[in-house]
Amino acid sequence: MNAPDASDDPTPLALPRVPRLRVACAMQSDTGCVRQHNEDAVGCMIPRDDDPLALAGALAVVADGMGGHAAGEVASHIALRSMLHVYYASAGPPPQALAAALVAANDAICERAGADPACKGMGTTCSVVAIVDDRAYVAHVGDSRIYLLRGTAFRQLTQDDSVVARMVRDGLLTEAEARRHPERHVLVRVLGTKEFRPAVAPRGMPLQHGDLLVLCTDGITDQIDDATLASVVRSHAPVDACTKLVELAREAGGADNATVAICSLQAEPLAAQPDPSIRTTRETRAH
């Protein structure tokens, strides 16, 4: 007796269905109480479902520029534009696309600094998260940060590229000592250097319904401790949380520009999603 041919089975195998995560993003940036210019930049791209770019997912970026006068603002906005453009123009997987975007941003900043004396020596931090399907891909340079709030657990996904942060990791300083150290803002990696090499995690981090990703510059984290930051994000809607965090940074002295973006992940009801086990056709017209 011959084994049954699967192709003759009139009942197709149903593919497992899992909720799709929808991304929403709230953002706010403030000059603070001391600085004359806002050298931070923040942006988010969430393509529509019918946009071919939707396959690349959503992208959120924060950057904190440096360089004096308006040069820091130039550097951070170059980084933002480069990340958004190159990431979505890349045909590679998310880690490869993020690495290419970081390199392009670094090259563009170096080129502008070399061509414009007013921008000589400028640089910027850059913290980026790409959310593709149910995974987050993180790219980072500098001391801006990305956090994950999942239920009651709040943790930092990035490591600060600073002299003091390295001392903490080496056991030479405590976290409390690091917060008061006079060299806490001395960075060892930024965009805008000739020998820059991107460091992007090769695997994405699984996401869940209800997760919140928080991206912020040190104008937030220098003024607000992690426990307070987590409490605000947990107890407010993302838009209100952004406003509250900026308010708290200003109340603490507002010594620096303060920028935050909060990405929320919500599962779309299965009934609203197309069933992948059902094949559909669309009408096409010849031109």
Results as ranks from 00 to 15, higher is better:
3 A>C: 03
4 P>Q: 13
5 D>N: 14
5 D>C: 09
11 T>C: 10
11 T>F: 15
13 L>E: 14
13 L>G: 07
14 A>S: 14
14 A>C: 12
16 P>L: 08
16 P>S: 09
19 P>K: 12
20 R>G: 05
20 R>H: 11
24 A>D: 13
25 C>W: 01
25 C>K: 00
26 A>R: 02
26 A>W: 04
28 Q>N: 06
28 Q>D: 12
30 D>F: 01
31 T>V: 15
33 C>F: 02
39 E>N: 02
41 A>L: 04
42 V>R: 09
46 I>K: 08
48 R>Y: 04
50 D>P: 01
50 D>R: 12
54 A>L: 04
54 A>T: 11
56 A>Q: 10
57 G>Y: 02
57 G>C: 02
57 G>L: 02
58 A>S: 15
60 A>V: 15
72 G>K: 06
73 E>D: 14
74 V>P: 06
74 V>H: 10
75 A>M: 10
76 S>Q: 05
76 S>T: 13
81 R>K: 13
82 S>R: 13
84 L>H: 13
84 L>E: 10
85 H>F: 09
88 Y>S: 05
88 Y>P: 08
92 G>I: 04
94 P>H: 12
97 A>S: 12
98 L>V: 09
98 L>E: 03
99 A>H: 05
101 A>D: 06
106 N>Q: 04
108 A>N: 04
112 R>C: 07
113 A>P: 03
116 D>A: 04
116 D>H: 11
118 A>E: 15
121 G>R: 09
123 G>V: 11
125 T>P: 03
129 V>W: 00
131 I>N: 00
139 A>I: 08
139 A>F: 06
141 V>H: 03
141 V>Q: 04
142 G>S: 05
142 G>I: 05
148 L>R: 14
149 L>T: 06
150 R>E: 04
150 R>K: 05
153 A>H: 10
157 L>H: 05
158 T>V: 03
160 D>K: 03
163 V>T: 08
165 A>C: 11
166 R>G: 14
168 V>M: 06
169 R>S: 14
173 L>G: 02
173 L>R: 05
174 T>K: 10
175 E>I: 12
179 R>P: 00
188 V>Q: 07
190 V>R: 08
192 G>C: 10
194 K>S: 15
195 E>R: 14
197 R>S: 10
200 V>C: 01
201 A>P: 00
201 A>I: 06
209 H>C: 11
210 G>W: 09
212 L>P: 00
212 L>R: 15
213 L>C: 05
217 T>M: 02
220 I>T: 00
221 T>N: 13
221 T>S: 15
223 Q>M: 13
227 A>F: 07
233 V>C: 07
234 R>G: 02
237 A>L: 08
238 P>A: 01
239 V>Q: 14
240 D>G: 02
241 A>R: 05
241 A>K: 01
242 C>Q: 04
244 K>E: 15
245 L>I: 01
247 E>G: 02
247 E>D: 12
248 L>P: 02
248 L>V: 08
249 A>H: 00
253 G>E: 05
253 G>Q: 01
256 D>T: 06
259 T>P: 00
261 A>C: 03
262 I>V: 06
264 S>G: 14
264 S>Y: 01
266 Q>L: 09
269 P>Q: 11
269 P>N: 11
271 A>F: 06
271 A>S: 13
273 Q>T: 13
276 P>E: 10
276 P>Y: 11
276 P>A: 10
277 S>P: 07
277 S>Q: 12
277 S>N: 10
278 I>E: 06
278 I>F: 09
281 T>A: 14
285 R>N: 07
285 R>H: 12
286 A>S: 13
